[in-house]
Structure formats: C-alpha cells, structure tokens
Design a binder for these strands. Structure first.
Lengths: 231, 231
DNA sequence: ATGTATCTCGTACACGGTACGAGTCGCCGT
DNA sequence: ACGGCGACTCGTACCGTGTACGAGATACAT
C-alpha cells in the first residue's frame, strides 16, 4: 500500500562508487537523479510544450527505462511541480538599484519574473494550478517587504501583492499562449481580420500589442503602481 | 482528405421528421445537436472539472455513441472552445448604471465576467489558451468604448484594456485553482503553516484573501482604475 | 428504383500514466 | 565467506484516452 518513496524523499546516498571510479563506461549516461530528471524535463517542455512531456519521452532522453523515473519522483505531477519551481529562481535586484528605490526593486523583480516565465512558455499557465514552490514564495516575501518600505498601509499591502500577482500572471499567461498559437499564424491572421469587422477595436489593440508587448507590460505596471502608491 | 465538416459548419436542416411526429419513442433522447453537446459538456465540466470531460463520458450522458459526436464537432478542442464561449455571455449593465458613469460600467462588466468564470471554475484557466470567442470580444469592445468615453488618451486605451484583462484573468485563474486544490484542505493547511515560518507574509495574505476574495478583487481593481484614470 | 446527403456508431489503433514484481548491484554484519 | 538488505532499474501489462475508418441507417429528390 505505501508507495516506495511517498512523502519523505530519501535521497540516495551520494553514490560513493562514482566518486571512486570516474567513469564506468565511456558512453554510459550519468546515473539518474532527481536533478537530472528535472533538468531534462525542462528541456523537453521548452522544446515541445506541455503536451510534449510524457514519461516515456523523458525516459528515452535520459537513456533509462520509463519505470525507473518513478523511483525518483512520485508521478508526473511531481515532475511538473519540480520543473516549475526550478525555473523561477530569483537572484535579487542588481546593485545599481538602491535600497531606497522601492519602486525600482519591485519593477525589477516583476519584470524578471515575467521574463523567466516567457523563457519557458509552459510555465506561466502551469503556475496557478500547482502548489506554490519556495522560489515564488520568496518573491512574494520580497514584494511584501518592498511595499511596506514604500509606506503602504499594512491593510493595503495584501491587496497590493494580490493585484501585482494578478497583473503579472494574467499578462504572462496571455502572452505565452499567444506565442504558442502563432504556429498557425496564417489561420489566426485570417480569423482576426474576419472578426475585426464586427469588433473594430480589436484589430487596433492587437497591432499595438504585437509590436511592443514589453512596453505595454511596463506601462500597465506603471499605472498599477501609480494607483497603489500612497497618496 | 477533407474532413467531413471541417470549416463550414453545415447545420443539419432542421430535422423535418421531428416536426411531423412529436416523439418517436417515449423515452428516446432528443436528437444530437451542437447545442445539446455544448450544454452537456458544460454540465460535465462543472461537475467533474477539466479532466472529467472525455468524449466517451460526454457521449454516455447524451445517450449516443462516441463517434456520433464527431459529426457535430470537429474534435475535443472544439468542444472546449464552444463550452467556453457559451459561458461568457454578457447582457450589459443594469439600467441603474447611468451612461455617464463609465467607471460603474467597467466595474460591473468586469465583476460579472469574473463571476461567470468562477461559476464554472474550469473556464478561467482555459480562456487564455483558446481562441477568443465572440462573447469575450464583445466584452473587450464594450470596455474600449467605456474607456474612450472616460477621456483616456487613445494611445493609452490599449494599455488600459490590456491591464484590466491581465488583472481579471490573473485574479480569476488564481482564485479558481485555489478552490480546486482545497479538496485536500488538510494537506494544504499543513503545508502552509509549515511554510509560513520561513515566509511570514504568506499566512497573513492568505488569511485576508480567504475571507474576502471579492472585496480584495474590488479593491485592487479600484487601485488599478485610479492609476488608469486621466489626470 | 436509384441515388445522395445527412447522421449514427462499432471497431480498431496508437499513445498515455503507472501498478506490479522480478531483476541487479554494492555494502554491512556476522 | 556469506547471507541479506536496501538502493535502484526496468519489462510487462492494464486500463483509459482521442479519433480515423468505413459500414450502416434514414429521408428526400429524381
């Protein structure tokens, strides 16, 4: 009944054998490990998208049997969680940004967050459905500190975090899925022009955004921060 | 090579037979139709979530064979598109809101939008990945008019729409997925309290949001609109 | 009577996640 | 020296999925 490695993840004991003899066979793959699995999963996701990740493909790419994966990870969901968090590290703002400049801090972190997710377009739409990993929690914590330092009332800080989260997630999820569906750009183009007769605004908006998503994100974020700033 | 009903959807010709003889058998299901399929798909999605919708279950519930569905619908993706759009109708603001009150108009539409998606929690996370249906386009169109009437500069209207879209989508997707993962509330609770030692802000935020998501949404939206309003 | 269009559906296939249990290997206590 | 045990690998099998294919059924036009 109990799964082999359910809750407590017993990392294998550092593989002493490998430390002694450098390489067993010339072309043998390095042994499986949670880290290697996650890294390869990210590769696969980047290359093929969410649906491209299957346990079989993952095992192939790792040069192992499918079921071997299940000793290191609980199931496919687990792989998603780990891949997701591995992609969301944050190293903090550059030194250039001074600690007085709360707004610069916040903007830098959020733009970095968005950029990280856009580098791995599968990640954004996955994030809301999965458990919050340590890296996102760290970002939220940092956000909270900056906003408090900005002089925003304690009662409003939560709402502010929530608003910024919403904005970033919405923007990035939407942007990422636009990229993906542009595979069939011809069809999309045709569909849109057909629609723009009935919905005159859409075409205008699309054109503007198509050329400058980054600028639009930054500008909208600016408006939001304007609204959030203490008066 | 050409699919039976690829692009041009040839609606069947009103089933004359049924108009003549009211019911063929006492307990026979009404005939299949795109509308009935979509309505049943929505039922299924509401009851079982995204993964609960399978073509076989859908056919069962409709009392038909699986492959019969494929005459009315291109594929499963098509079903998602149709179900999604069918859930996003908007009837416009109530008469109480006067046409001068652009802000009231916008708030009403956006809150209605969010409410519609939360009534069907599968819908929010699906929306960004799917083609924009007529009902969402209609909402965006309306948004655009209200904002122009508000006196927002033309160049900024696009960014404003984009920002509001982002906010609503982010808020709703996140909220909807919280609901879903609360099935295992015990586990979530434990996980969060364990985390809140390292990330003190999180617990506070969660508590606030847990009790008053609607209020937080409204308040954050207020901040955003403050930032967007012409100065 | 003979098509022809509309609609239904049984069968079959390729592919997905993963349960089960038999293997291999190296270390440790005796 | 040996027996056992824990760490790890993996082949096979099962069931559930979307949907291609093509054989029917029905109604209507000619």
């Amino acid at each position: 009944m109990a799964a082999k490695r359910s809750g407590a993840r017993s990392k294998r004991s550092q593989r002493i054998s490998e430390l002694l003899q450098p390489v067993q066979e010339p072309h043998s793959e390095p042994p499986l490990s949670r880290e290697r699995i996650v890294a390869t999963a990210v590769e696969l996701l980047d290359a093929q998208g969410v649906d491209g990740l299957t346990m079989r493909r993952l095992a192939d790419r790792l040069g192992s049997g499918v079921m071997s994966l299940y000793w290191h990870v609980d199931n496919k969901e687990d792989v998603f969680d780990l891949a997701l968090d591995s992609v969301l590290e944050y190293r903090g703002p550059p030194q250039i940004v001074e600690s007085q400049d709360w707004r610069g801090e916040v903007v830098h972190m959020l733009e970095d967050w968005r950029a990280s997710m856009l580098r791995h377009p599968w990640s954004a739409s996955l994030l809301p459905r999965r458990a919050l990993g340590p890296n996102i929690l760290g970002r939220l914590e940092l956000l909270s500190k900056s906003l408090s330092r900005a002089g925003i009332a304690d009662a409003d800080v939560n709402v502010a975090i929530w608003s910024l989260w919403n904005y970033v997630m919405g923007a990035t999820i939407t942007r990422a899925s636009f990229d993906r569906s542009d595979d069939d750009r011809a069809a999309a183009q045709q569909r849109l022009t057909r629609l723009s007769e009935r919905y005159p605004t859409i075409e205008r908006t699309r054109l503007l955004l198509d050329n400058d998503w980054d600028g639009a994100f930054r500008k909208g974020l600016g408006f939001l921060l304007d609204g959030l700033s203490p008066r």
